[in-house]
């Protein structure tokens, strides 16, 4: 069976979790991998957590629905409460430590604390918190290469007036990467 990578991005609406997940999916597709991106939709979105699941594989992707993902990136407390328990044993949980002051309490997964809102403010735009998280995830898992990510960002965001924004995103990515000290094999 082909090894596949699964990750959930979860947070409040507006934290950029869908965008970060889509960027990861686009990048993986550009690298020639099969990908599925699934949003949460419906009544659970209103006032609750927004989340999306991304599955990346070299082979055919069977079930697009992943109840116990190998990894999760949680941006707020309700998302930690919901997804912290669902990550597969041996998996990876990235926690936005700017907004969440607890951990999952599990000792069978790897946890990495990423202060994504602090990073975003430091680099000059609170909206790039999602990119710091995405960078930390990629640094830890090698799900895609940073070269592909950066070229996809350029493609999606374009040049011109948005150049400054692109630079801030680059800085958020650099800071996000720095937080991660080792690789996690998922």
């Amino acid at each position: 069976m082909a090894k596949q990578k699964e990750v959930v991005f979860a947070g409040f609406g507006g934290q950029g979790v869908m965008t970060a997940g889509q960027l990861l999916a686009y990048t993986a597709m550009e690298e020639g991998k099969n990908v599925v991106w699934i949003p949460s939709y419906g009544p659970e979105m209103r006032g609750g957590t927004a989340n999306c699941t991304i599955v990346i594989s070299d082979g055919r992707i069977g079930s697009p629905i992943i109840n116990n993902p190998m990894s999760a990136c949680v941006f707020n407390r309700p998302s930690l409460d919901k997804f912290g328990a669902l990550v597969k044993k041996g998996g990876l949980l990235l926690i936005n430590s700017s907004l969440i002051d607890v951990k999952s309490g599990r000792d069978d997964i790897t946890e990495i604390l990423v202060p994504v809102n602090d990073i975003a403010i430091k680099v000059g735009n609170p909206k790039v918190a999602n990119m710091a998280m995405l960078a930390a995830f990629i640094e830890a898992t090698d799900a895609v290469s940073f070269d592909s990510l950066l070229s996809m960002m350029e493609k999606k965001m374009g040049g011109g007036k948005k150049k400054e924004l692109l630079e801030i995103n680059h800085r958020a990515i650099e800071e996000g990467r720095k937080v991660v000290t080792g690789k996690v094999n998922i």
Partner: peptide, 9 residues
């Protein structure tokens, strides 16, 4: 609905 909502290449 999953066919309608999910993104794939």
């Amino acid at each position: 609905a999953m066919i309608g909502q999910m993104m794939e290449s």
